[in-house]
C-alpha cells in the first residue's frame, strides 16, 4: 500500500523562485470554483433554518432573519413524514451492512491473499469482473428471489447480500493483506496458530486502517442507496431515508416544504460529515485505492 503517496501531498519540486504568474491564475480559478462548490451546502444549511415564508423570498437571504429550529423538530413530530423511524431504518441497514461487508470481505480477501489453489487466479479475475456488473442488470431476478422468500417490504434484502462479500472490498483488502510479510505467518504457525486464528488474531488486528476504509465506504454506499430500497420497501414505516425524503416531495403538503427537506437532507448527510471529519485520511485512501467515489 502506497502510504507514502497518501501521506502529505508533496508539491512537484520546483526551484524556489518567485511565485509564477500561472500559479496566481490557478489560485484564483480554484478559489472561484471552490466557492461555487461550497455554496449549495450553505444554501442547504440556510434554507433548513428558514420559515416557509422566508424560504420563498427572492433574492434568497443568506442568514435567516428568524432561526426556525422548529423545522428540525417538525421532521420528528410530523406523523406524515415518519422521519425518525426512517432514520433508524437507515442506521440499522447501514450498520448491518458494514458488519457484513467487513467480516465477509476480509475473510474472503484473506483466502485470496494467503492461499494458492487450482483456479485461484481465475476466481480472482472473476471477482474483478463483477466490479463491472451493473446492478440494474441483475436486480429483477434478485427481486423475484427475495419476494419468493417472503422478504418483500423488509430490510433483509438490503442487508443479506453484504454478508457474502463485496468485490471492491475484497480487492482493496487483498492488496493490503498481500503486503503483510510471510514471516509473520510462519512465526504464527510455529507457535501453533490455526489458519482461522491467523486470520482473526493476526491479520485483522494488523489491518485497522484499511478496515476503517472498508467500513466507511460500505456505510456510505448503503446510506445513499436508493434503487434497491425502492424495489423492496412498500410501507412508509419501512422506508430508508432516501425513499422517505424523495416521498416528501410528492406528499400532501400545500407548498413543497423545501425548508423541511433541506433540514432532512442536512440530517441525512450528518453521519457522513462526522465520519469525514474524524477520518478524512481514510476517505482519501479509499477513493485513491479503489478509484471509486
Amino acid at each position: 500500500m502506497s502510504e507514502v503517496a497518501l501521506a502529505k501531498q508533496q508539491p512537484v519540486r520546483r526551484k524556489k523562485t518567485k511565485i509564477e504568474f500561472a500559479s496566481i491564475v490557478g489560485f484564483l480559478i480554484l478559489l472561484i470554483v471552490t466557492i461555487a462548490m461550497i455554496m449549495p451546502l450553505g444554501f442547504m444549511l440556510s434554507t433548513s433554518l428558514k420559515t416557509t415564508k422566508e424560504m420563498l423570498v427572492f433574492p434568497p437571504t443568506v442568514i435567516p432573519k428568524h432561526f426556525a429550529w422548529d423545522n428540525f423538530k417538525e421532521l420528528f413530530v410530523n406523523e406524515e413524514i415518519k422521519f425518525g423511524r426512517q432514520y433508524l431504518n437507515s442506521i440499522i441497514v447501514a450498520i448491518a451492512t458494514v458488519i457484513g461487508t467487513v467480516f465477509s470481505s476480509s475473510f474472503v480477501a484473506f483466502g485470496f491473499a494467503r492461499y494458492k489453489a487450482k483456479g485461484s487466479q481465475f476466481l480472482f479475475v472473476l471477482v474483478l469482473s463483477t466490479l463491472m456488473l451493473p446492478y440494474p442488470a441483475i436486480m429483477i431476478p434478485q427481486f423475484l428471489l427475495f419476494t419468493k422468500l417472503g422478504l418483500h417490504d423488509s430490510l433483509l434484502p438490503l442487508i443479506l447480500p453484504s454478508f457474502f462479500a463485496s468485490a471492491y472490498m475484497i480487492f482493496l483488502l487483498k492488496q493490503f493483506f498481500t503486503s503483510i510479510p510471510n514471516e509473520l505467518y510462519d512465526a504464527g504457525r510455529i507457535d501453533g496458530c490455526k489458519e482461522i486464528r491467523l486470520y482473526w488474531n493476526l491479520t485483522l488486528p494488523l489491518s485497522g486502517p484499511v478496515i476503517a476504509t472498508v467500513a466507511i465506504f460500505s456505510f456510505i454506499w448503503s446510506w445513499n442507496d436508493l434503487l434497491a430500497p425502492v424495489l423492496y420497501l412498500d410501507s412508509q414505516e419501512n422506508f430508508t431515508l432516501p425513499i422517505g425524503m424523495a416521498a416528501m416531495l410528492s406528499s400532501k403538503f400545500r407548498i413543497a416544504p423545501w425548508n423541511l427537506m433541506m433540514a432532512a437532507s442536512l440530517l441525512s448527510v450528518l453521519p457522513i460529515i462526522v465520519l469525514f471529519s474524524i477520518a478524512q485520511r481514510r476517505f482519501v485512501q479509499g477513493i485513491v485505492l479503489t478509484g471509486i467515489k
Binding site: 465477509s104 475473510f107 474472503v108 484473506f110 483466502g111 485470496f112 494467503r114 492461499y115 494458492k116 489453489a117 487450482k118 485461484s120 476466481l123 472473476l126 471477482v127 463483477t130 456488473l133 442488470a137 441483475i138 436486480m139 429483477i140 431476478p141 434478485q142 423475484l144 428471489l145 447480500p161 454478508f163 457474502f164 462479500a165 475484497i170 489458519e195 486470520y199
Partner: peptide
Amino acid sequence: EGRWFYFFISPWLIGFIVFALFPVLAS
C-alpha cells in the same frame, strides 16, 4: 492449502452464484 483457499473464499463463491451468476442467467 487448496482446501483452506476454498474455505475462506466460500462466502464470496456462494454470494457470487446466488446474487450474480443466477440473476444474470435468470434474467
